[in-house]
Design a binder for these strands. Structure first.
Lengths: 132, 132
DNA sequence: TTTCATGCAAAAGGTTTGCAACATT
DNA sequence: AATGTTGCAAACCTTTTGCATGAAA
């Protein structure tokens, strides 16, 4: 999956993807950096960013840019929605069926060629619901 | 509308809100800065940011943080969706009825207390559709 | 006059990039 | 050997913040 288009399978690249695959918390780049550093202490943040970019281009992972400024990454590249906690910023999957017809509706009310949509839910996670 | 809670109506604040009210392009902070500078040349970017923050808190405008890193601002604070051009980054309103039931559905498949949702469409605007 | 807001500049936070050395093919 | 990749550090871009000055109320 990585070997197409002149890309090399480096230890850094392999490790970053592996970490992301087994992580269900939708980590940020620096969180991934911390994880990978346990295996490759001298890896640099720049390398992490560059590889996340490559893996996104390959469709192996996805970048989540809704809401907050800081990006989060998802080892599952299948289309799905997310739910974000307004308090602790936790991010979970929302197992909702993709709204396929909604893009057609959007196309009908604008003069854009609609190619996709991004939907994110916000609220309080179980832990933060208790406190607040 | 501005005079509640110890807030003062300064020239800067008034001008920023006025610019945003008559602007339908969902400008970024630095675009607003450029606009307002035509009237108040010595205004600072910091002041623009601070006032955008205040106006958001008051519910007079809204901050759009979907997609790209850079925030965009909307002089219309009513709930509505947006459509973004993937090519030129143009941002328009999508006159779609708010999906009210979807938050209940999301609540049913997660253990969050759902408070809201953000939906953005992406595609190509009329201009960019022609070229691409 | 009180206190909120401003301008300025510096800092912060996240991400990107130039470059020489290095590793994969 | 060829060239993609890394580590490092510096640069970048947007946003935030400390502080002395200025302006609403």
């Amino acid at each position: 999956m990585l070997e197409r288009q002149n890309l090399r399978i480096t230890r850094q690249r392999r490790t970053i993807l592996k970490e992301l695959r087994k992580d269900y918390t939708h980590p940020s780049a620096d969180q991934i950096y911390d994880k990978v550093r346990q295996t490759i202490p001298r890896i640099s943040l720049g390398t992490v960013y560059r590889n996340l970019e490559v893996l996104c281009r390959l469709g192996e992972i996805q970048k989540l840019k809704l809401g907050r400024t800081k990006k989060r990454f998802d080892g599952n590249s299948d289309f799905h929605y997310h739910m974000r906690c307004l308090d602790c910023n936790r991010l979970d999957d929302a197992a909702l069926a993709p709204l396929k017809s909604i893009e057609d509706e959007a196309g009908a009310v604008t003069d854009y060629k609609v190619l996709g949509h991004r939907l994110e839910f916000v609220g309080f996670c179980p832990q933060c619901s208790i406190q607040s």
